[in-house]
Design a binder for these strands. Structure first.
Lengths: 169, 169
DNA sequence: GCGAATGTAGAATGATTATTCTACATCGTC
DNA sequence: GACGATGTAGAATAATCATTCTACATTCGC
């Protein structure tokens, strides 16, 4: 991935996260990407491709944020993951999961749905592996997804309750 | 609410649930509502109002689906609520929560955000009350929201895990 | 049975949009 | 220093869309 591709993808990601997927026009996305219309269409030949590029970038950043430098004691991992997700919510995702937002905006786009499932499956699999509880992907996903959706409503109190639930695993 | 208002709101709700909030044009919504353009604009004077009407209708239907005829033994209520949510996912909400979808499509619409918070708060409050565990709204919301988001990925297995988590409350 | 209210059908309007195209600038390489 | 690749700036195109407006039908209380 070249420098300009990275610049485009990260600009698009930030803009879609701020303004949603339905509203922004392509000229608006061009400004967010910081390139010309011609260059934007060269690397992302349609508005849909701009969405895909933003999500792929998001996916890489999210994995990095969640799984880099986790504690080595496995029983501390679930609580650490919950803190990471909460930190992500505070700083990056005040409106909830970007993948769900994209699918919600275009529920008939099969490629979007595939990106969502892939993203969630990878997060769940890595989380279960690093916590040393393979086979409990569903519970981990349930708690992390619940946290992501509930945090905007109840704020920091949600983090404590999520950890208590995770402690029962 | 007159018969025609009910007809419009329920048609809009079904259509937005199927096709998302970004895509459908107003003529498409008119067909879904089963009235003329003039009548549609009379009761919902802008496309945004059509969204609000659909969500208010959804809210009423969801409360009915979740809380009607629950078991009277309070310790059976959390599992029963989980079954209700799962049933709703199977039949009505294959793409996830309609309120989150609406907010995702237009994250700057303050009225949408207010509708979402109101909806979730009412569900949480009633759930905690009927389960006889006031003060545990956050945990219940976390599990029910987690279920809603996770069910499309892991299917029926999610229901079992959600009940196990709820049993620890 | 008449008139006011309320409905249907769909054309006109005015804006907005995604995408393509034209003209020009910059830069590293031979 | 010329050239091919790659960039910027923004106008042109063609389609779509939300909203309003016109003309006509139906219903119902009186």
């Amino acid at each position: 991935m070249s420098e300009i591709q990275e610049k485009i993808a990260s600009g698009l990601e930030r803009h879609f996260a701020e303004r949603g997927f339905a509203e922004p026009s392509v000229p608006e996305l061009r400004d967010a990407a910081g390139v010309s219309l011609r260059t934007l269409y060269k690397y992302t030949p349609s508005r849909s491709e701009m969405v895909y590029a933003a999500l792929e970038h998001r996916h890489r950043r999210y994995l990095e944020e969640l799984f880099a430098d986790l504690p080595t004691e496995q029983q501390k991992v679930p609580a650490a993951l919950i803190d990471r997700v909460a930190g992500w919510m505070r700083t990056q995702a005040s409106h909830g999961c970007l993948f769900h937002a994209a699918v919600a905006a275009a529920p008939e786009d099969a490629r979007l749905m595939a990106l969502l499932k892939d993203h969630k499956a990878q997060v769940a699999e890595r989380a279960a592996a690093v916590a040393g509880i393979p086979g409990r992907e569903i519970e981990l996903t349930l708690i992390l997804e619940g946290l992501t959706q509930t945090f905007p409503l109840y704020g920091e109190a949600t983090v404590i309750r999520a950890k208590q639930l995770a402690a029962t695993l």
